[in-house]
Amino acid sequence: MIAVIHALWLRELKRYMRSRVQIVAALGQPVLYLLALGFGLGPVFQKAGEGNYIQFVAPGIIAMTVLFSSVFSGMGLLWDRQFGFLRETLVAPVPRIQIMFGRTLGAATVATCQGMLVAVIAFLAGFRVSSPVALLAGIGVVLLIALLFSALGTAVGSALENMQGFQIVMNFVVMPLFFLSGALFPLTNLPLAMNIATRLDPFAYGVDALRTVLIGVTHFGLALDLAVLFVGTVILLWIGSRLFARIQV
């Protein structure tokens, strides 16, 4: 059991390490957000009495990187369908949940690496965490966020038949998850509708957890954040393995 999960995890990692160009390309967007928003909105944020915007937004941008990278790696399933390796996986005498778990762990590890690269860039841009312990806790939270959204990616990848669905998922699932999460703005004093929407967004809890451990500012409270991340991951893994078992090629 461990062997299969390990092999699938390692496969994702090897594919990641061998796509240097993609690693760098995927850093472009978060770096742009970090610098443009960080320095562009910084003065307004400061004037509004909210403090240093780089400090505030860096955890949000790190979480965003992890969100995008997780969903993207999870949906790598669609590439396997396109190039045929999915067939080899589907006939393997391995319980579907192990396949889902191996893939999800791999995608989550890849996303965590991407998130840590952005954290280094944020550090260079002036972002500082309160202590080394905060940093370790941050990596733990990043991994949880990565697990949840990799599981989402693999589940969605199992449900779709081709790459055409990918843009739809990005625009109508992933972007709303991101913009409603409070990654870019504080969740306080929002209009009612927006307030409800943010509470229904699982990614909001991920952003909040990361901000809590990195800079000590919380909105929902860490316990609720972690509970949502954990329960969400379990549910999505389960749904994912059901969807995976139904794939026909």
């Binding site: 299969v4 092999a7 496969r11 594919r15 190039f83 390796f85 080899e88 393997a92």
Partner: peptide
Amino acid sequence: DPSLDGELTAEENMDIHGVFYH
């Protein structure tokens, strides 16, 4: 139709198959 992982080496494709089939 093809069913290999193009991003892995020949040996790695064999290895992962071996793991799948214990």
